[in-house]
Deep mutational scan, measured.
Amino acid sequence: TEEYTYTDKEKADRAAKEWANRGYTVTVTQDGPTYRVRVG
């Protein structure tokens, strides 16, 4: 499991979509002003 942190919702959504397109399980959680994209 890897985790990426973004401050921009659009970038987080785009990253999540790209990982999902590659067949990974993706979870996006909002943590205050940041968005965490957990992959795998």
Rank of each mutant, 00 (worst) to 15 (best):
T1D: 11
T1P: 11
T1G: 12
T1W: 15
T1M: 13
E2T: 15
E2H: 15
E2Y: 15
E2G: 13
E2M: 15
E2A: 14
E2S: 14
E3W: 11
E3R: 04
E3A: 05
E3H: 06
Y4L: 06
Y4R: 05
Y4K: 03
Y4H: 05
Y4F: 13
Y4I: 05
Y4E: 05
T5K: 07
T5F: 14
T5D: 06
T5E: 10
T5V: 14
Y6R: 00
Y6L: 02
Y6N: 01
Y6I: 02
Y6Q: 00
Y6K: 00
Y6T: 05
T7D: 13
T7L: 12
T7K: 09
T7V: 09
T7P: 10
T7S: 10
T7I: 11
T7H: 11
T7A: 10
D8G: 04
D8W: 03
D8V: 06
D8S: 13
D8L: 05
D8H: 05
D8E: 08
K9G: 06
K9H: 07
K9W: 13
E10Q: 10
E10M: 09
E10D: 12
E10A: 12
E10N: 10
E10R: 08
E10W: 11
K11Y: 08
K11L: 14
K11F: 09
K11D: 14
K11H: 12
K11Q: 14
A12P: 00
A12V: 03
D13N: 10
D13L: 15
D13W: 14
D13G: 06
D13P: 00
D13R: 07
D13S: 09
R14E: 13
R14F: 10
R14Q: 14
R14K: 13
A15V: 11
A15Y: 06
A15K: 06
A15W: 06
A15E: 06
A15P: 00
A15F: 08
A15S: 06
A15G: 04
A16K: 04
A16W: 04
A16L: 04
A16G: 05
K17R: 13
K17H: 09
K17A: 13
K17S: 10
K17E: 13
K17F: 11
K17M: 12
E18K: 08
E18W: 15
E18P: 00
E18L: 10
E18F: 15
W19P: 00
W19L: 06
W19N: 01
W19H: 03
W19Q: 02
A20H: 08
A20R: 14
A20L: 13
A20P: 01
A20E: 13
N21D: 14
N21M: 13
N21G: 10
N21R: 13
N21L: 13
N21H: 09
N21W: 07
N21F: 08
R22F: 06
R22H: 07
R22Y: 06
R22W: 07
R22G: 05
R22Q: 11
R22K: 14
R22S: 06
R22T: 04
R22L: 13
R22N: 07
G23E: 02
G23S: 02
G23L: 02
G23K: 02
G23R: 02
G23M: 02
G23W: 02
G23I: 00
G23T: 01
Y24N: 03
Y24R: 04
Y24P: 00
Y24G: 01
Y24A: 04
Y24W: 06
T25E: 11
T25P: 06
T25Y: 12
V26W: 01
V26Q: 00
V26C: 03
V26G: 00
V26R: 00
V26T: 05
V26P: 02
V26A: 06
T27C: 07
T27Y: 09
T27F: 07
T27E: 10
T27S: 10
T27P: 00
T27W: 09
T27Q: 08
T27R: 06
T27N: 07
V28H: 02
V28W: 03
V28P: 00
V28M: 07
V28C: 06
V28E: 02
V28T: 05
V28I: 12
T29S: 09
T29A: 07
T29I: 14
T29V: 13
T29N: 05
Q30V: 10
Q30D: 05
Q30E: 08
Q30G: 05
Q30W: 07
D31P: 01
D31L: 08
D31H: 09
D31V: 13
D31E: 12
G32R: 01
G32K: 01
G32F: 03
P33S: 13
P33E: 14
P33Q: 12
P33H: 12
P33D: 15
P33I: 09
T34A: 08
T34W: 14
T34Y: 15
T34V: 15
T34F: 15
T34N: 12
T34S: 08
T34E: 09
Y35N: 01
Y35T: 04
Y35W: 15
Y35E: 00
Y35S: 01
Y35K: 00
R36G: 03
R36A: 06
R36W: 06
R36Y: 13
R36P: 01
R36M: 08
R36K: 14
R36V: 15
R36D: 02
V37I: 08
V37D: 01
V37Y: 01
V37H: 01
R38T: 15
R38F: 13
R38E: 11
R38H: 14
R38W: 12
V39R: 04
V39K: 03
V39T: 03
V39S: 01
G40H: 14
G40E: 15
G40Y: 15
G40I: 14
